[in-house]
Amino acid sequence: MPGGSGPLEVGEDTRAKGAPKELAITELEGDFEYFPSNDTIRYPAKRSGGEVIEYDFGPYEHWAEQEAHDAAINAAGNVFSPAISQRNDVWVEAAPWETSMRRDLRVVYLEKVNDEGDVVEEPSIDLQSLIQEVPRTVEVTIKYDGNMDEYIFPVYVYRAEGKHVFGTTREN
């Protein structure tokens, strides 16, 4: 992913510069069961009314990486108040595969523009503050049933623009 030293242009990203964030997941909510004989895990796949109605099985390694990735997305967005997850003009997502072959995280900063391309609304968080305060990496350790796995997710800030259409916004 590119990351220049000048101002961040629309459609570009840069590495976040905040202090790295570390978290450990030692207790999992839900009904999980690990099978060491074939290194798989049973996990809730479907819920209805808060109850598990279907389970699925998968390789432990894939499940642990996804759990870590989800936790990293939440952690990267919780450096502000209100948290990024509670905003509609800034959010954290997985970086697109075409720009990243790893599980990088991307904080999207969305400016709303009119049909002429003029910015009509900016996020309530300053772009430079976002770049400086979002953690540059999120390291997640998962400890479960004798396993310990560590994942490091680089974090980038991406500047986007979207057209303001009838009270909604769509990214260009």
Rank of each mutant, 00 (worst) to 15 (best):
M1Q: 05
G4P: 13
L8G: 02
D13K: 07
D13E: 13
P20S: 08
P20D: 06
L23Y: 08
A24D: 06
I25V: 06
L28A: 15
D31P: 06
S37F: 14
R42P: 00
Y43S: 11
P44C: 15
R47C: 02
G49W: 01
G50Y: 10
G50P: 06
G50R: 06
E51N: 09
V52Y: 05
V52M: 06
I53R: 08
Y55T: 05
F57L: 15
E61D: 15
E65T: 09
Q66F: 14
E67A: 15
E67V: 15
A68Q: 10
H69G: 07
H69M: 04
D70G: 12
A72D: 04
N74I: 12
A75K: 15
A76T: 08
N78K: 12
V79N: 13
F80V: 12
S81Q: 09
P82S: 06
A83R: 14
I84W: 03
S85E: 13
Q86I: 06
D89R: 08
V92H: 08
A94Y: 04
A94V: 11
W97Q: 08
E98R: 10
M101W: 13
R102M: 07
R103W: 10
L105V: 11
R106L: 15
V107H: 04
V107Q: 01
Y109D: 07
N114A: 01
D115P: 04
E116I: 13
D118L: 05
D118K: 14
V119P: 07
V120C: 03
E122Q: 04
E122D: 01
E122A: 11
S124K: 02
S124Q: 04
I125A: 02
D126Y: 00
Q128P: 09
S129E: 14
S129K: 12
L130A: 14
Q132F: 04
P135K: 11
V138N: 01
V138Y: 06
K143R: 07
D145A: 03
D149P: 02
Y151S: 02
Y151K: 05
P154S: 01
V155E: 00
V155W: 00
Y158P: 02
A160C: 00
E161M: 04
E161I: 12
K163Q: 11
V165Y: 13
G167Q: 12
T168M: 10
T169E: 09
T169W: 10
R170F: 06
N172M: 07
